[in-house]
Nucleic acid binder design. Structure first.
Lengths: 203, 203
DNA sequence: CATATTTTATACCGTTTCGCATAAAAATCT
DNA sequence: AGATTTTTATGCGAAACGGTATAAAATATG
């Protein structure tokens, strides 16, 4: 079924690639300020092609958000490899986050979700939904590792994994905001380091 | 000089009030999605009046950001009253923050700066500047109180006030983002509470 | 009261916006 | 090969956009 070739003229583009290119535009400008002209130029797709494949601008943006959420969860769970000590896990989480937040031609871009979806979250319920769900997913991924840490004795037996996870996420949220505001890598790394100390207990 | 009545037709509005009304619009929609029609309606000012008094849309937005920054600093330093114990100070900071973040007809509005200025920070350097400066000011205000706490013995002598202040701010940033994402007051209060515990030491 | 000055109101201008109609192009199916 | 189906390209169109020209209204000054 799925592998059968579709009738008609084949697409000259890969949908995931296009969503990724659109994401770059949204990341730099935000949803509202990103025009279809700019998106069309960045993806090298004419507007009718964009509409045919993804629907309107909001749906394309939602696709970009979903893609980011999924990729971020992958990065997160890779960083949380239970074979490593918890302290190292957290350090890796922040390290991977900073790699994303400080990447791009615009040195300081921050987190795609936090920097662009928050602005639209009031007016666009579906954006708010993705934002909320993503934050929860990140919390949950960290919580799982925290639960393991309690079982293993890496954390005190009375530590609450869910609470610690949300605090760990809080540091990540702050990294995201501060990166967008133009903080230097050194400053951000210092915050990350102190966050690890605070949550895992000072070494 | 200043109190001399200006020649010509007097203004029928108070500039600070108008900036406040404009802020409500920007807060809900973000900078880019806020149209001059909407701003004009919300302030009950015709467009030429807006332009005469504040310049273009970006300058009006910058005025709104500055006003928010100043008011927030006032709220912050009031919450950090050194007559109270540090733990109570921090709890008040988060309490006041949540009062702002959860206020408004749109239940979950978050922080004006973090929710709207981050989106524009890449394309508009002046917005990024205000955002960065505001975050620094908040950090500094908390740092001052932390320094006092170290002197007083509320915190260990080897605690670093600047670091602790930025971690305290991190929790606030997370509250801001999560409020905008639609988290309930209970959830946010729990995060605030655990943040106080973590930074001041569990009671 | 006449003049100067500033604010307000109406209306408009050129541009950009999003989205689509139309038709050509490129593939599969019969 | 011809019919069918889907994607691409060009270009349009109505609406909304930010911003301003113009003139009336309201005050201070002389």
């Amino acid at each position: 079924m799925k592998s059968e070739k579709k009738q008609g003229r084949p697409r000259a583009f890969d949908a995931r690639t296009v969503i990724g290119q659109a994401r770059e535009v949204f990341w730099d400008r935000g949803f509202s300020a990103a025009s279809l002209d700019t998106l069309s130029a960045a993806t090298k797709l004419n507007r009718p092609s964009l509409y045919g494949a993804f629907g309107d601008k909001e749906e394309l943006y939602l696709d970009a958000l979903e893609g980011y959420r999924e990729e971020s969860l992958d990065v997160l769970s890779e960083a949380l490899d239970p074979a490593l000590p918890l302290r190292e896990n957290l350090a890796r989480v922040y390290d991977r986050a900073l790699a994303i937040y400080l990447h791009g031609e615009t040195a300081a871009r921050g987190c795609f979700l936090i920097s662009t979806a928050t602005a639209e979250a009031i007016q666009h319920a579906r954006v708010r939904e993705v934002l909320g769900r993503s934050l929860n997913d990140f919390d949950d991924a960290i919580k799982e590792r925290m639960e393991l840490a309690v079982k293993r004795g890496e954390l005190p037996a009375d530590a609450d994994p869910a609470t610690l996870a949300r605090l760990a996420s809080a540091v990540m949220h702050s990294l995201a905001v501060r990166a967008r505001a133009g903080d230097t890598r050194e400053t951000l790394e210092a915050l990350a380091h102190s966050g690890v100390d605070l949550i895992c207990g000072r070494k």
